[in-house]
Amino acid sequence: MRRMKQIGALLLIILLMGLAGCSAGSGPAAEGKGEHPGAEGDTGSAAGFPKHPITYSIPFDPGGQSDLEARRQQPHLERILHTSVVITYKIGGGGAVGWSELAGKKPDGYFMAGINVPHIILQPLLQKDAGYQTEQLEPVAIFQSTPVGLAVRKDSSIQTLEDLIRLAKDKPGTLTAAGVGTYTGQHMTHLLFEKKTGITIQYIPFTGAAATIQSFLGGNTDLLWGNSNDLVSYKDEFRLIAIGSSERFTALPDTPTFVEQDVELTAGIDRGVAVPQGTPKEVIQVLEMAFLEIAADPDVIRQMTEEGFEPKAMGAAESKAYIEQLRAEYEPLVAELQP
């Protein structure tokens, strides 16, 4: 009798797992095949790529924005590429572990990883043991941008960027600004902002967006560097004094840009996907077309905009040129940081 119960319990668990597995593995792919029977001709050109499932590696925690983005794309990718796309995680070192793995993978297009700009530029410049070089990652596409904005609390005496600059000039180094991480996109934005305005503000790094916002709401810092999506969620709590997009940001129409307020600063974090250097051009092209098709999907564009992102559709060549241009901009700044 007891043995029976034991076996029963085990069977139940196996059954559950099996169910979850079947649906996880074949669900979206099977759906996709039914929907798009005619698209085979245009993607099958590059020597039949892809022949088997593709791995899409995420260098950040499950549930992070890179992961959410990949999960949004997964069913579309499976539909367009006619194969399953397996999302795995390689976490650590602010993405460095995942990108060094990508750099060492076989360049056949069956392994790609999400990339973040400017992370992939800054890490090899600043860490001697980052484990990869920027040019070892061949960008396929950049599909999303998150402008960085500057906010104060509602009860702050600072109303505009001008107020802030005046206050900071009066008492150099006494204002504090919270941001995510050291030598990251937000940190660089902070340094560029200081340089272009000639003021000094103490940058306080935090370990993630949630910790930054919690501490800022608790009154521990005067200013907050935030990604647009977070700023959109908190637009009633914060007063946004400037945003790093080149034009007014769709989701935050009332927030002026830095440029409008005479500070030549555009800053943001871009998300894309890359394959190892040396991947054949035709293979990159197949992946590029797939990502660009998803980027043009009106539903995807609408969702991204509502969540506070700026949808982008940069192809392989454009992404590469963009990364090169940013690297040229950051190199002198980094050289100043390192004595």
């Binding site: 650590g92 070192g93 460095a96 572990v97 060094s100 043991d129 980052a130």
Partner: peptide
């Protein structure tokens, strides 16, 4: 304390 070993960078 990574002593130049890339796998230790992530802690």
């Amino acid at each position: 304390f990574t002593f130049g070993l890339a796998p230790l960078v992530a802690g």
